[in-house]
Amino acid sequence: MKELLIRTVSKEYPLLIGSHIFEQTDMLTKIFEGKPSSILVLTDDNIAPLYLENLIQLLSPYAPVYSKVIPSGEASKSIDQFYECQTFALEKNLDRHSMIVAFGGGVIGDLAGFVAATFMRGIKFIQVPTTLLAHDSAVGGKVAVNHQLGKNTIGAFYQPEAVIYDLSFLKTLPTSECRAGFAELIKHSLIWDENFYPWLRENIKTMEDLKGTILEDALIRAIMIKATIVGQDELETGIRAYLNFGHTLAHALEAELGYGKMSHGDAVAIGMIFAMKVSEMRLQVTLPIKELQDWFDLLGFPRFPKAITATSVLQRMKKDKKAMNGNIRMSLMKEIGSLTVTDVEDHLLLNLLQKECKEE
């Protein structure tokens, strides 16, 4: 097990990463030394049958434990589920000294974190990610739910007390979920560290290669990139926007197709290729787009979906949180490891989107 320290302006907290962490009772005692008045575990119906009972047994020496299981999938990151979780917490008499444990992937982490940020005006919570994708969402304190008009448009910045990343939970993930999480790993390699991207391409030819020490090393490097960026810009007033590389189109695709129809990671992979094409046109640079697309094809990432129109996707992109006065702002790449954030003209985006959609 390795312990990393996540530092932001508002808080410092530990991130523990390794296998079978929950078997180390000394670690749990340290995390829960404040003795919360009660603990609410929020999880989904994929994780609950596999691990929930064991987690409750491990947490029960520290406080009364309640659990709420929600349907898995992006559609559950909604105002309706948020309201149900708040109601459940009130019914179980949680108070300001209670704690929430987000036990699941990115959907659970975002939803549970937003519940914690708003219940009684804010209570403590811990991130216990169980997916590869959640290595990104569990760190940095962005918590939110979706609106039908835009992803993550209702939320807050709210840091956890700790992140416990037990890699033992990843062994039950299907390949498609691992691939989705790997997209965010690749994103971190593209935006900050020019040596990380070739290291990933050299060591991971197929998804079968993403395991053991390679997996742990890759995750630690990615998490430290995010921690460095968040530490310098917690509230996304500057370079934290680099972490949105590929996400302007990705969020638009997820909303346009219907939440849950395409995984977030698959959408981000498509979005990164698109962002690189925009970068070449907008910044007059040359980027390894074909190299990255060929690698994505080998890894099984999908191509741009054709069952949508360029104009509808463009309108979705205009609702992105980074948009200003109706102008789309994107994180664009100058070269591997170097980004900038700039406005992009509608006509440029529409032209590229039409090529992707193969509209007449």
Rank of each mutant, 00 (worst) to 15 (best):
L5A: 14
I6V: 14
V9K: 15
V9S: 15
Y13C: 10
L15N: 10
G18S: 10
L28R: 05
L28C: 06
F32P: 02
E33G: 04
P36A: 08
V41L: 12
D44W: 11
L55A: 04
L59N: 01
A63I: 03
P71G: 08
S72L: 01
G73C: 04
A75G: 04
K77A: 06
Q81C: 11
E84H: 13
Q86E: 11
L94G: 07
I100D: 04
A102Y: 05
A112W: 05
G113D: 12
G113W: 03
A117L: 06
M120Q: 15
P129M: 07
T131M: 07
D136N: 12
S137Y: 00
V139T: 09
A144G: 13
N146E: 06
T153D: 01
G155D: 04
Y158N: 06
L170P: 07
F182I: 00
K187N: 13
S189P: 08
I191M: 02
W192Y: 15
D193R: 12
D193W: 06
F196A: 06
Y197L: 13
E208V: 04
A218H: 00
R221K: 15
I223N: 02
I223D: 04
M224N: 12
I225A: 01
T237Q: 14
T237D: 08
I239C: 13
N244C: 03
A252M: 00
A252Q: 01
L253S: 12
Y259I: 10
I270N: 00
I273A: 04
E280D: 14
M281V: 14
T286C: 08
L287P: 03
P288E: 12
E291W: 03
E291Q: 14
R303N: 08
R303P: 00
F304T: 12
K306H: 12
I308F: 03
I308A: 02
Q315S: 14
R316S: 11
K318A: 09
K318C: 13
M333S: 09
T342W: 00
H347V: 12
Q354E: 13
K358A: 15
E359N: 11
